[in-house]
Design a binder for these strands. Structure first.
Lengths: 333, 333
DNA sequence: TTGTATGCGTTATCAT
DNA sequence: ATGATAACGCATACAA
């Protein structure tokens, strides 16, 4: 690990002042083209790379952003993260990835830590922070994009991205109804999740407009993973054996429910039709292939990053993006 | 976004010198317990958090490491990344996540970028860099852990972590042979991957010791994902219809091969037995459930992080960890 | 135990 | 067009 080169080293070698080198490297005016060229090639030869820590201290710009997710192992967030990282790469940014494990304490600690490292902005996915605290945190950062969360009020440095869950629920329930299903259960995500709340609303609204009764017993919350889905479906079957359809919080939960069906000897979709949300790659791998609400997750990631950079650059107005899901009918419903 | 507090602010408020505050905050000797306590509570009240950029410039320690993977969307790397991040969190570190997309150019660019941000170390997973270049890069960083790659020679700041692929191949082939299979194909990963090379060696060795002929036609390389596996298996079936077993580079490839079997009307495992590698969560979700070589991926991530910190702290000797895979017999073989 | 000067590598600002 | 100097916020080394 040889010594790092600094601007001073290049300046000495080029027999010019440190500032001339700085200007040349940063393509700033104030250097003759001739000198600039010679400095640039010299720096290249010597293998100079600017130190972003020092630059960051001087400019407060670090070309770094934070990406906060509950669990990067969850295909949903993995896809979003990939979109974010791709976009970051294209724009010369690096991302700090942190997992919260759905733990608000850990999430808060992560934000502290990122803040201390002078990130220029943060993308918060499915934050589990209470609204007031979340708003406090948002104010600490120059720019924030929240995914899967609806801010109470517009904030100047905030853009939100949400899936249109009401619409999604309508699409799913509409399909079930068209298939003649009437005992449609809903396996929801964690109660403190915004998407969970919205999907429940959408579910209720869809039942209402179909003039179907809403039995609170037929809704079950669970942790948003396969195991959660399996357990929740099992509980539902125990309570209400005649359930003939399940709308699941997401694809993972839906697949868990499929497993529960298998264990309970129920055939999918004949006995129990199932629809998920997200259309993660898994959805086409499981058998029967999962009918689900498609969303372009990677695109959401890219959109989140672009929006964040827009806020940072100052040419963004507070906005709330709605992503429209699209029903992909496959084999499970 | 209110102004950041600095040591100077706290010092002024506490009516002591900046250095006393610094010492108090960092739990360094040279401050009376009394003064330290009052400073600490004051800093807490005022909401002071040290600026890591400034600290990093002064100390060259940034509490930051880089994690380089081909694709964080691939469950293998997602699991490893989670292990790394968990460990990092526990140790007060943050990680830069970068995807290379298997592109050496992008990988190199990523390393440049991370280096410029003074990371204390890097974890390189399945690097696609040519050996010489990789070694050059390793020398740039204070500490490096490579996963899925065997260094030619020990380096003082390097620890490698590899799955024992020879052993893995033996376990897989042994199982096939015990099942009476004799036409055992191998779908390998990209040629420039070290694990691919080693798995091929293991495959050959296993065939040799079983005194079975080795037909080069029965080995096919592919990109290490489902689509690659599907295509490769289809090509193999076209060439050698009597294949009765497939050893796949990893689980994704194995699942792709399963799909090819489905398309070719071959039953798994009756007509074609299949064994994968890694035991990603998917392996138990697909039907038939995949027989595979189990490796604790999250644990590899944690191990990588621990090793990296050991090197950074200076209490590590060059080492090469071998992770022993374990055959998990399920339904596909 | 406490405080002062100095440097980390860069950019901003003000001279020349 | 170039250069000198002062920040940026902190820690190291040394002085009191």
């Amino acid at each position: 690990m040889k010594k790092r080169l600094t601007l001073a080293d290049i300046a000495k070698a080029a027999k010019v002042s440190l500032m001339t080198v700085s200007r040349a490297i940063n393509n700033k005016p104030g250097v003759s083209d001739e000198v600039r060229q010679s400095i640039l090639t010299l720096a290249e030869e010597m293998g100079y790379h600017p130190n972003y820590i020092a630059r960051g201290l001087a400019t407060r710009r670090t070309a770094t952003i934070g990406l906060v997710v509950p669990d990067n192992t969850n295909p949903f967030f993995a896809q979003v993260a990939r979109g974010v990282e791709d976009g970051a790469y294209e724009n010369g940014y690096n991302i700090f990835l942190v997992n919260t494990n759905e733990d608000p304490v850990r999430e808060l600690a992560a934000l502290d830590s990122l803040w201390q490292k002078n990130i220029e902005g943060a993308i918060l996915c499915s934050s589990r922070l209470p609204t007031e605290i979340l708003e406090e945190q948002i104010q600490r950062f120059p720019a924030v994009v929240v995914v899967n969360r609806e801010p109470r009020k517009p904030m100047p440095n905030l853009i939100s991205i949400n899936i249109n869950d009401q619409r999604g629920a309508q699409l799913a329930l509409g399909h079930f109804l068209a298939l003649g299903r009437r005992q449609i259960a809903f396996i929801n995500g964690p109660a403190n999740s915004t998407s969970a709340r919205r999907r429940l609303e959408g579910y209720r609204a869809a039942l209402r407009s179909a003039e179907l009764p809403l039995d609170p017993q037929i809704v079950e919350a669970c942790s948003p993973d396969m195991e959660g889905g399996r357990l929740a479906a099992a509980a539902l079957f125990a309570r209400l054996p005649k359930i003939d359809a399940i709308y699941a919080f997401n694809d993972l939960v839906a697949i868990g429910a499929m497993q529960a069906c298998e264990e309970a000897g129920k055939k999918v979709p004949e006995d129990t039709a199932i629809i998920g949300v997200d259309d993660i790659p898994l959805a086409t791998i499981v058998r029967p292939r999962l009918t689900t609400l498609h969303v372009n997750l990677r695109h959401i990631g890219r959109l989140a990053l672009r929006s964040l950079l827009d806020i940072i650059k100052g040419d963004a107005t507070p906005a709330a993006f709605q992503i429209e899901p699209e029903l992909r009918i496959r084999d499970s419903a």
